[in-house]
Design a protein around this nucleic acid. Structure first.
Length: 121
DNA sequence: TGCTTGACATAAT
DNA sequence: CATTATGCCAAGC
């Protein structure tokens, strides 16, 4: 009985995707949120991975501050895909954040979440 | 349809 | 603290 049509399920996922992006758009410049945090904000606390999945599928020109999302350790999560010739998306993300005033621990490349984590009101 | 992957999180060591 | 093991759950294949 708990079986919904395939179409309906897909539509639900699309809605979820939109809500995830909406929340990410709320993150103010100079702050960061974790994947789990965003998942919780859309009432799906166990779907942190899906948040990453959504971001992965973003177009480069998408109007979303994807760089403000980091993992629970305050570190930039590693991707599989890299940009050629020594450049990496991770480095770009760090640069974007630093440009907004977010400071990284030099050794461990970690952000102080206590200080920079976004607190939705 | 079933198995593998992955921009995660948390508990245990 | 850092590293490892487990759990998760939607996407892709």
């Amino acid at each position: 009985m708990a079986k919904k049509t395939l179409q309906k399920m897909q539509r639900e996922q699309d809605r979820l995707r939109d809500r995830i992006l909406q929340q990410i758009r709320r993150i103010p410049s100079g702050s960061v949120a974790t994947y789990g945090q965003i998942a919780a904000l859309v009432d799906r606390p166990r779907n942190a991975r899906q948040v990453g999945s959504v971001l992965r599928s973003l177009d480069d020109d998408a109007d979303v501050p994807w760089h403000r999302v980091v993992n629970a350790c305050g570190q930039i999560s590693e991707r599989r895909s890299r940009i050629g010739a020594g450049g990496s998306v991770e480095l770009l993300q760090q640069a974007l954040l630093e440009a907004e005033g977010v400071r990284f621990d030099e050794e461990r490349r970690r952000i102080d979440l206590k200080q920079y984590r976004w607190q939705p009101t």
